[in-house]
Amino acid sequence: MKGYLGIDVGSVSTNLVIIDENDNLLTSHYLRTRGQPIRAVQEGIKKTGADSPENLEIAGVATTGSARRLAGVIAGADTVKNEITAHAVAASHIVPDVQTVLEIGGQDSKIIIIRNGIVVDFAMNTVCAAGTGSFLDHQAARLNVPIEEFGELALKSNNPVRIAGRCSVFAESDMIHKQQTGHALPDIIAGLSEALVRNYLNNVGKGKEILPPIVFQGGVAANPGIKASFEKALEEKVTVPPHFDVMGALGAALIAKRLMSRSDKPTRFLGFELSDFQYEANSFECEDCPNNCEIVNILVGGELHARWGSRCGKWDQIEEKRTG
């Protein structure tokens, strides 16, 4: 049986899925990256290997997410794709006539506008925390509420308080003030959810034409409070797909499958055993010109396996051009 592996290595989580030839999801894993993408990929691949059917043969691999290049080298990816495209592919697969994708992850958030199955516009926020999962995480910790219960609590509120948006620093001081004046916890949490949604729509979603069907994915989609706030703000139904937290990886797997079905080359996948290899990354500054590029070396078992980071391409060994 043939399977296709998608790996999404983000700043907060590392996700892996395998799909079969009929696009059915065979395995799905969600791990914390914890600042160690190499380890997360190794561990994820090991777990995925252990969970996959015996007769499974990996016929294609794609990586995505902010560590997509690194992950691509470690796993032996057939293609490396940006997470915006991966998320759009996954959303279109689950909801074929989707027109808007809202994606909120730990450190960034995106909006993708799709018309007739084609991405026509997108925006991504990586600078400001006010519209991302880390904002919620942080406030949940302040309020001593486990993040998993955050959403359910918000739904209990009939009278959300207004909490300042724009900046998580303003939101926090506003929230403390409301706490001290005696507002109920569910009202404060519902207010926070609305503040996050307002931030997202004013910042990432600014100037975008948000039309239904709307799909909401990414780690924060686990939070029913945020989903409700989106529905209230947009006055439209918002769909959270069943695998909302691994959509990037699912998109990558679909991309791998499409690519390999058009190609007669074998996959470059290095196998499920790669957790046994010793990976190491180091870097140096090239001083051959004023660019002073930071060159990253990836070593496998002490030997140079891949290298990137130079602007002129002189140190690169794995760079490929779209031209070729």
Partner: peptide
């Protein structure tokens, strides 16, 4: 540079799809 490259890659994908279409 990473954030810029991600957006540019996605933008290139978008333009390619539109051209194909």
């Amino acid at each position: 540079q990473a954030g810029v490259e991600t957006r540019l890659e996605a933008f290139v994908d978008l333009m390619q799809e539109q051209r194909k279409n």
